[in-house]
Structure formats: C-alpha cells, structure tokens
Design a binder for these strands. Structure first.
Lengths: 191, 191
DNA sequence: CCAATTCTGGACTGATCATTCCAGTAGGAG
DNA sequence: CTCCTACTGGAATGATCAGTCCAGAATTGG
C-alpha cells in the first residue's frame, strides 16, 4: 500500500475556477503565470505539479467552464411552463451574465480551431448542449410556440449563434436593456 | 520650404493591410514584432518610425479594418432591388468571408472596453454603420418586407449582433451552408 | 518519533519580447 | 555633387515570460 502522507491542501476545482476568472478576462496570451498563481492562491510549483503547464491549465479551464455553462443552460432549458420559456430563460441568463467575458467565445476568437485538445474541451459540452436545445425546440413546436416548418437543428444553431452574439455585444458595451431586446429578436425568428 | 529628400518607399496602407492580416489571425498579444515586420515587409525601424509602437500599430490596424468593413457593408446595403435585399447582401457577404477572423470582433474579445483609443477606432465606423442600417430597415418597412412595428434601431442592433455571431460561428468551425442558414434566420426575425 | 508526501516562496534559467541603437545604403532636392 | 531624409538589417538592451530548482515547513501514516 502506498503511504498517504500529506493530502492536497487546495481544492483543485476552486483553483481552476480562479484561473477561469483570469483567462476569461485576459485570454491565454494575456494571462501571465504570475497573474495566475496570485489569483489561484497557490504556489507556483503547485500549479505546474497539478496542471502540467500553462496550456494544460488553460485547456482544463476551458473544459470546466464549458461544463459549467452547459449545466446552467440545461437548468434554464427545463424552466416552464412551456418549452419556449425554457429557451427564453437560457437566452436571458446569458444576457444577464454577459458583463463577464465568456471563456468559450474568447477561446474560439483567440485560437479558432487550431488546437485539437482545445477543440475537444469545447466540443464535449457542445455535443450535449445541441441536442438539449433541439429537444426543447421540438417541444415548443409541438406546443405551437415555434413554427412547425423550421428545422430544429438549424433553429438550435441559430440560438447558439445568438448566445455568442449577445456576449460579444455585451463585451463591446451593450446595455442590459439592449441585451434584453436582442433576446426577444432571437426568439422572434422562431415564430 | 522643407527639403523633401527621399520619399517614402513603402505604402503605409499596404503595410497596414499586411499587419491586419497578422493581427486578425493571432490577436494583439499573439502577434510578435518579428511576425509583423516580416509580414509587412518593412524594416523594424520603419515600423517604429511610422507607427510609434506595437500598440499604436494595432489601433491603426483596427481603425483601418473597421473603415474597410464599413465601406463593404455600405456597398452591400445599397444592393437592390428592395431594401431587404441590401440587408441580406450585407449578411451574406460576412457569411462568405467569415472563414477569415474579424479583427473587430477579436479586438472586442481581447480587450473589451478597456482602452479608450481602441474604443474610438471601432466607434468611428460604428457611428456611421448603425444609421446606415437603420435607414435601410426603414426602407424595408416602407416596402413591407420588415414588420412595421419594429424599432429600426433595435432591429439594426440585432442584425449587427448577428454579424458578430456569424463570425464566431465561422471561427468555431461552422460550414458555409450553416452560415447561409443563419443569415436566413436573422432576417426571419424581422418579418 | 520517522518517513513520505505536499505544499510554499524565492531564486534561477534560458527564451522571447518590445524597443532602441547604429552603421550603412539609397534616392531626391538644391 | 552634396545634403538631407528614408530606409534596411543586425546587434544591442532590458524587461518579462514560462518553467525549473531548491530548501524548508507542514501534515499525514506507520
């Protein structure tokens, strides 16, 4: 049996959350190891022991961030009473939070599709989110709130594009009121 | 009279265009002075003499890029025969070009609204584009192609948000077909 | 106690970065 | 021809960066 000795003192996920806070605001290239170490409140060596290197930390941060957003989206999608309310709730949550930069959008902007490991970190969440939205769109079609002739896949893609657009608009300085209006327009396309 | 001596040999705007090519793909932090000098095909000293420093070059690049996009948008907006065709042409041009990263969107992502000089470089174009779109939306309303009860300002903002969304979607890997569908959905919201 | 393990923080390394300096070339104006 | 200016390219400079090393402190199990 391995001798256990001292256990980990800092919470890995907590440290990761703090790293997310740095990366989402400054991007990968704009975040220095010193900024990260200070924000994460761990020693420099602990960072490298735990996450390998800065890129590994970034990929993990994007993965964790995406998973968190996925969960938040799914929770909102479940709201009712009607399916369209769930779709609206998803959009409106993003509008309400969009004063903080989105690490997903930022990582797409900064790296496009250049890095397979980064693509994977994003796509893991994407692969779950897209069908969840599609299902909700179908429900809304059955309830008569979304036009029956729309392709649910395409409609879901459109909504996701508008999530990204919302976030860029917010980072560019759009007001909360403007964001609210943008969500209404996005839903309007589905009538 | 000032003695003229040797005139400038490289074309400032041409060099700027080449710098735009680097910045749009790699962002500000991801572009090194050496990458820039090589792409711009000028000496290192010429870069600093002409643009001051890397940040100055970046701000000028964003300004020039924005002005170029503005002109391209305005040209498409003029297409006909109906105003809605102009709006569609604007969206479809962006969809067609979106395989190249957008320096405007990238600069918003990377810096938000942190730098006044950068904000100004973007807003100069924005201040012209928004009214141009609004005017075209009004025309389309008069022609019955856009719902009369929509606020033209809000509708124009929605279209611009969808331009940004389109670009993020493309950088994230969306196909030309998907982008085409997204433009149709954006216009659908205005019916 | 001891041995094993995980921290911390500071010092270090080598690379890369933006920026400046400089020596030299080239071309237009007088 | 002779200044003056515009360029080039390479060699500095000093800062910052990612990543490593190390010595010591802390905390567990045996």
């Amino acid at each position: 049996m391995a001798v256990m000795a001292r256990h980990k003192e800092f919470d890995r996920d907590e440290a990761l959350d703090r790293a997310i806070g740095v990366f989402r605001e400054h991007g990968f290239e704009g975040s220095s190891s010193t900024m990260l170490v200070e924000a994460m409140k761990i020693g420099r060596q602990s960072l490298y022991d735990t996450f390998g290197d800065k890129w590994g930390l970034y990929v993990e941060a994007v993965g964790r961030y995406s998973a968190g957003e996925l969960e938040a989206h799914r929770e909102r999608l479940r709201s009712g009473p009607r399916a369209i309310d769930g779709l609206r709730a998803m959009l409106e949550r993003v509008a309400a939070q969009a004063h903080l930069a989105c690490l997903g959008v930022n990582s797409v902007c900064e790296f496009g599709r250049r890095h397979d490991d980064l693509n994977k970190a994003r796509e893991a969440a994407e692969a779950v989110l897209q069908p969840a939205i599609v299902a909700r769109v179908r429900d809304a079609q059955a309830e008569g709130d979304v036009a029956a002739d729309l392709d649910p896949q395409a409609a879901a893609g459109f909504l996701q594009t508008n999530l990204a657009g919302l976030r860029i608009a917010a980072r560019g300085g759009a007001s909360a009121d403007q964001l609210k209006i943008l969500t209404a327009y996005a839903l309007r396309a589905l009538r």
